[in-house]
Nucleic acid binder design. Sequence first.
DNA 1: GGGTGAGTTGACCGGGCGGTCAAGATCTCC
DNA 2: GGAGATCTTGACCGCCCGGTCAACTCACCC
Lengths: 199, 199
Amino acid sequence: MDRRLTARGLERRRQLMDYSARLFARNGYDPTSVAEIVDGMNVGKGVFYWYFESKEALLLEILADSQRSLRRLQQSYIENEADPVRRIELGIRATMDWVGQNRHLWGLFRFAASEERFAPYLRRGQQTAVSDVVRHINEAITQGRVRQTDPSVLAHAILGVTNQLSGTFLVEQDGRPSEVADAAVDFCLDGLLGARLPV
Amino acid sequence: MDRRLTARGLERRRQLMDYSARLFARNGYDPTSVAEIVDGMNVGKGVFYWYFESKEALLLEILADSQRSLRRLQQSYIENEADPVRRIELGIRATMDWVGQNRHLWGLFRFAASEERFAPYLRRGQQTAVSDVVRHINEAITQGRVRQTDPSVLAHAILGVTNQLSGTFLVEQDGRPSEVADAAVDFCLDGLLGARLPV
DNA sequence: GGGTGAGTTGACCGGGCGGTCAAGATCTCC
DNA sequence: GGAGATCTTGACCGCCCGGTCAACTCACCC
């Protein structure tokens, strides 16, 4: 596409992406027609295809955009933190805060992860997330603070807890990110049985 | 539909469900057309609508069937086990074994969970799973073996770990259920930092 | 061997889909 | 004020979708 867009054009583009993302998330990607999108925004169909190659390309852009913004938030939380375990904690907190502010995107990610045509794009993002966490875990293992286990397994487990708790308690039950983050951090650090002494 | 089916009819029905489930899982539910299904099975389109009300009804039956079989397996693992913590462990192991034998259904569940038109049916199943686990956790808390925390949060965290690890290491990486289950159990019981003494 | 109901066929239907495009409106800058 | 780029319109296209149905075959029983 690579069109030269004016400021006004860029704004319109943003609006289309936001509105589409909401429709996709509410009613599903396939069931949402391009006609619905442009009707809902009171523009002609041509507008859509002026800004996007196709419906599929639009979804991919929405996903890429979201992943970028999530990663940016995570890194802003983590920078300057020396303790690897605390970096993991901050990563979880960043994720919860991001989900709290982008609840409508949650279902869209789930959908994309479930379809072979979109999953590969998400997997790349997940892989970066995993290797970020793996790095912290390795450091913590070196310090003797985490038992010797396959770090990528631990990283995936942490992601799983974060995913599930954010989905259930933030998106479905509209909870507060900081509280859900507390719970996720506790579980990830100590599991069910752990009885870590208070710091 | 409630048609009277002969043994032959029931068999055909099973074949249709299995084949459709595989196509849905591979290519997505919406993108898979009824024509594809019946062509792939070398039957006329009428066969499909002889056995199922609609494409949507078929998916719901596949999901209900799967949930039933998963729950049945979990209960068979758990029955007669008195220790609540060990019941949780056995539930995880049952889930991993089930996923190991039904890898193709994994993506289908993810999809269904992501769409508002199907999610409610899955949520009921997940709710039963959660309350099963909650019951064990409450018992363990009473015994003073699990720290006092909202049990439903812990239950969801366990489900999250199980989901993520089965998806990544069983479905994507084709791992062995028992090993993945070991990892999930360890993480759920001890978290990252826990250093439980060997039994 | 004929009758009955289970099972099967595939042409057909209405409709909605993603995407196109010729035409026109609007903005920007000289 | 006009030239050229940006932006917008909506009728239109070909396609394929989920679903229907009248006609047919087959298995089985009396």
